[in-house]
Write a protein that binds this DNA or RNA. Sequence first.
DNA 1: GCCTGAAAATTGGTAGTACCAATTATTTTT
DNA 2: AAAAATAATTGGTACTACCAATTTTCAGGC
Lengths: 233, 233
Amino acid sequence: MAQHSVAQQAQRALEAHLLDGSWPVGVRLPAERALAETLGVSRNSLREAIFCLKARGLLVSKWGSGVFVTDRLQTAISSPWRQLVADHPDLRWDTLEFRREMEGATAHYAALRADKTDLKKIEGIIKRLTRAYETGEKNEEYKADADFHEAIAEASHNSMFLYLHAGILRMLREHISLNLMGMEDPSGKITDDLRRQHLGVWDAVRKHQPEAARQAMLAHIDFTRIELERRQG
Amino acid sequence: MAQHSVAQQAQRALEAHLLDGSWPVGVRLPAERALAETLGVSRNSLREAIFCLKARGLLVSKWGSGVFVTDRLQTAISSPWRQLVADHPDLRWDTLEFRREMEGATAHYAALRADKTDLKKIEGIIKRLTRAYETGEKNEEYKADADFHEAIAEASHNSMFLYLHAGILRMLREHISLNLMGMEDPSGKITDDLRRQHLGVWDAVRKHQPEAARQAMLAHIDFTRIELERRQG
DNA sequence: GCCTGAAAATTGGTAGTACCAATTATTTTT
DNA sequence: AAAAATAATTGGTACTACCAATTTTCAGGC
């Protein structure tokens, strides 16, 4: 009869409570045994549903305490790759290698083909980036950083690279940035290095030096990789 | 001890099989009872993991039949381009640039990390390829060619490259090969060049010379591009 | 009266068994 | 040889039992 399995129905029921506000953020869910009874399902099926919602980041469970509702706005949208990258930290190095090659190639072709419109756009982003560096606005810095990379992708005039940047690469960049942004940088050295690296890429693209642009971008990715390694082995 | 729950560990074990290719698309997983025993977890915990992967669309289960691997991971990445390439033939040069960079990078990391198993596999394919060249079996030559590139991708030991090769790159390769294979080659010069290029890549990978491998692969892709240009402007 | 701390109840985590229903493989019958 | 009946396998669900971490309760002492 049931189009969907009992566990799926249970998951729907839980999601409904999360959506209609009857279980606000931070609240503790009824105990599994009681909740299973009220939903009319076994504790097994209920746990399957809960486990899935936990994996999606909507719930967290604390041993001996209960299951709680988390802030679901962050993890609402996730691609299959995001989930995999989050679950398998060792995959991060694979994706970083991929990023390194792709961003390097993109910078190469950007330096080869950037026209006046492209250069003007990138220059504007560089100004935003510099201003964000100086004022220390981390949020604007992150946004300008992302815009910079996508502007480079546009300037490459290659649909393939452009789509990669709009899809996977953007996701990977977000994932890395979240880990790297929260770090302390008391001396401001890292911020300074990042600024120098972006200017290096921009300079090579502006002067139409493909290989210099590639090397500058590779150095930038390598820098983020090394900084990431320093923090997480 | 365990930072993560048993169910989460089970989920990662399943994901690992999906990522490293030991469970290809369409394959049927071992029965839940048997799989739970091999993983050393209870069937309940295993089912929680499976349920989550089903919800993410990576697995589908059929009543009384088994659990199967879907092609979500590959289609999620390759589908946008499949449509684009089909709709816009002039996109071919963009995709060739993309192929050039990706295959070059893959050869680089293959030379860096290929182990004895990888080398043995590649060597076998090289022998098939040589035999196909000599006997002039175009069909076997094409198949061995494709296997060669994918074996290189496996030897790179990078899940990202591996999946790209299994997805979009395979599609692009098919697209190119069909145009290139059907051409006449009376003097046998092109076949001879192709053979020399494959041997060049194989030699660099075997000797663990990353940059030589990259350059050899780039030369190979450039050759196919030039031959394609000669025929279709 | 209030604090302390140990015992008890509660809760999520895991394992195991049993049974059902759908599918598949095997055997039997025609 | 084909078809039908049967047995074995598989996912789906439920239930019980126990463990370990947490919270609550409550007795005892100051």
